[in-house]
Computed example of a mutant assay.
Amino acid sequence: MEHISKYLTPEIKLSCYEDKFFKSEIVFDQHMLIWFISGETKIVQAEATHHFKTGDIFLIPRNKPATIINYPKDGLPHKTVVMLLTTKILRSFYNRLEVKTEIIPVPRIRSFHHHPLLESCLASLIPYFDLKDPFPDNLAFLKITEAISILRSIDPKIDSMLANFDDPHKVDLISFMEKNYMFNMPTEKFGYLTGRSLTTFKRDFKKAFNTTPQKWLTQNRLELAHYQLAERNKKPVDVCYETGFENLSHFSFAFKKQFGYPPTDLLEQKANSQYLT
């Protein structure tokens, strides 16, 4: 995979993927503001699937599980400007303000398609990526605070996300897992996002589901995969990456072990039955 990242600072980078696609399951530790120069991205979350393409600008909230699939498009690479709105910078920004807002426990992705102010702010960074000298930290701080100020001016409710510095609180384990099992994260991360230590998470999980996290996750991912193949007519490669499996060969092996036939057989059976009717 050809992946090139040019960093102005640890918070600002130009990211480029040349290959057919790149997929990862991730929970961002910081809010991430992204401007698309070229390519496409599919972001699968518990509540919805989002598609972004050239010109789109969107903000991904921290501590929110997601499957991210990046594609080149029209012969151009997947290329983005990425700006991290770190907790440190946001605390510094909001310390100067008196903000009273309702904190939203499950923030959603914010989309700002072709917004001129945000696009101008992020596009102004492009020439700096070719500089040989280090990018001044004070200028980077100014550009990030400019972006935060623009976000606040165009989205009055954005403070509910950006001004919330709390770690995840202890949440209902069954509800959380049933909404987020398709994300391929370490057990430690599931524990953190449910407000538990690893030991407490495993103990509570055993009590709730009477099995281990790995066995339960695999079973539920395979059942979801079977549903998407049989009822939604999705391709095995898409199902594989949207249900938390590492790669297509691992998915096919686990699927056949569980159901007695590979994913491709299920599609052929469905196609034949439709043909006969």
Rank of each mutant, 00 (worst) to 15 (best):
K73R: 13
E98L: 14
N164C: 14
P156T: 10
T67K: 06
E188I: 15
Y71F: 15
N138W: 12
A66W: 00
F165C: 07
S153D: 07
K132C: 01
I103R: 15
F129Y: 13
H169R: 12
T145W: 11
S124F: 11
D155S: 14
R62H: 10
Y181H: 15
P116I: 01
S160D: 01
I148Q: 04
T199S: 13
Y192M: 04
R91D: 00
K170W: 00
F190Q: 02
N164M: 09
R203K: 13
D133F: 14
H169Q: 05
M182W: 01
I154T: 09
F205V: 06
A123M: 04
L151A: 05
R62Y: 03
K64Q: 08
T67C: 12
L118K: 00
L117F: 06
F201S: 09
L193C: 08
M83W: 04
F165M: 05
K100R: 12
E119M: 12
L151K: 06
K170C: 08
K73I: 02
T187A: 11
P127A: 01
L85C: 06
M83N: 04
F165N: 01
V82T: 09
T199G: 10
F176N: 06
E102N: 12
Y128A: 11
K202Q: 07
P61T: 08
L173Q: 03
P65S: 00
A66R: 13
L85H: 10
P127W: 02
S111H: 14
T194S: 12
V171M: 06
T101E: 03
I148V: 15
F190I: 05
F190S: 04
K132H: 09
D137K: 14
F129P: 14
Y192F: 13
T80G: 03
T199W: 05
V82I: 13
T200M: 07
F183W: 04
R108V: 12
T86C: 03
A147P: 02
R62S: 10
P156E: 02
L84V: 08
T67Y: 00
H113N: 08
F93I: 10
E188Q: 14
N184T: 02
F176E: 01
K64W: 02
L142M: 10
